[in-house]
Computed example of a mutant assay.
Amino acid sequence: MEAEERAAEHDGEREMTVDELAARVGITVRNVRAYAARGLLPPPRLVGRTGYYGPEHVARLLLVREMLAEGYSLAVIERTLATAPAVGGSATLALHRALLAPWLPPEPEETTAEELAARAGVPVDPATVDEMVRLGLVERLDDGRLRVTDPPLLTAGLQVVRLGVPPSALIAAQARVIELVREIAATYVGMYVETGWRALFAEGSPPDQLDRVRAVVDRLQPAAAQALLASFRTEMAAAVGAAVEAELGALAEE
């Protein structure tokens, strides 16, 4: 991979046709077009009906090929590249992947509103599906099916619904949880940027510190999750205790 990245850099600003691009990366033209259709490549520069590709396209295709070889699905690769800079070179994309990939949710699943309702043991409710779409919990596909963006989160939600909690109440609660978790994530990332990030790159540029970045992210993910879960357990115990005390007190007064 490193040799290929150096070769891509030596290409400079030289532009290629789709056939030349495919040959340069070692994949078929058909696959290049398929990856482009999924949004994995930025649009080429068009001259008439001919598209011309540059080093940024080579860098992206090399990353796609590498991640596929490591067992990542196209869906995960698509999410990894969704926020990557369109003109990023190989080193920039490698850094982007190292920082983002460990935090991505598992592989999405496809289902239908009817299947979700059956799993939850409740009637189909279009309004509930609309709210799930609004929150980003599911996405509508062109064929009318639904893509579940985070299957473990959905499974946990279905378990709560089967306990008797109305889907509308659970979704309202989840909307609030998402807001709070977003604040927590911003707090952790802000802390890391202000301390670990700057210290990490004090001795060199980010691409030069790629191995250190990967090592830090691999350690940061479980540490942050463990700290969050520990805090949640403590606060949940306090909240449950207070709720039980209040409810028992109300019963005693009756």
Results as ranks from 00 to 15, higher is better:
P43G: 12
E66M: 10
R65V: 14
V64I: 15
Y53R: 06
Y53Q: 09
G71Y: 01
R49A: 14
Y52C: 03
E70W: 05
S73D: 04
A75P: 06
G51H: 09
R45H: 13
Y53I: 06
P44C: 12
M67S: 13
E56Y: 03
L61I: 00
Y53K: 08
P55Q: 07
A59G: 02
R65L: 04
S73C: 10
L41W: 11
R60M: 02
A75Y: 03
L41H: 13
R60T: 01
L61D: 02
L40H: 11
R49K: 15
E66W: 05
L46E: 14
R45D: 10
V58H: 00
R60G: 02
G54H: 06
G48D: 05
L63Y: 13
A59P: 07
R45A: 11
G48C: 08
H57F: 04
L63I: 09
G51K: 09
P43N: 03
P42T: 06
E56R: 06
R45I: 03
V47A: 15
E56N: 05
Y52N: 01
G54I: 00
P43H: 08
L40V: 11
R45L: 07
E56M: 04
L68Y: 04
G71V: 05
E56H: 01
M67L: 15
E70K: 10
L74H: 04
M67G: 01
A59M: 10
Y52E: 03
L61F: 02
I77Y: 04
P55H: 10
E70I: 00
E56W: 06
L41S: 09
E70R: 15
Y52S: 07
V64H: 00
H57N: 04
R49S: 07
R60P: 06
R65A: 13
L62R: 15
P44K: 09
L46A: 14
Y52A: 07
P43W: 08
G54A: 14
L41D: 07
T50G: 10
G51I: 12
R45E: 13
V47M: 08
G51V: 14
P44I: 03
L63S: 05
A59I: 07
P44M: 06
R60Y: 01
L61T: 01
L62H: 14
S73E: 10
G51D: 11
L74T: 12
G54Q: 09
R49L: 07
R60C: 06
G54D: 14
P42G: 06
H57A: 10
V47T: 15
A75H: 11
E70D: 15
M67H: 01
V76N: 02
P44R: 07
L63N: 12
E66S: 13
A59Q: 08
P55T: 07
A69K: 13
L68C: 09
V47D: 14
R65Y: 13
L62F: 15
P43K: 11
P44A: 04
Y72E: 12
V64R: 03
E56C: 04
L40T: 05
R60L: 01
V64A: 07
V76R: 14
P44H: 02
T50K: 11
G54N: 11
Y72G: 02
E56G: 00
H57R: 10
L61G: 00
L46D: 11
E56P: 01
L61W: 00
P55W: 03
I77R: 10
E66L: 14
E56F: 00
M67D: 08
S73L: 06
V76Q: 11
A75K: 08
A69Y: 04
P44W: 08
G48N: 11
V47I: 13
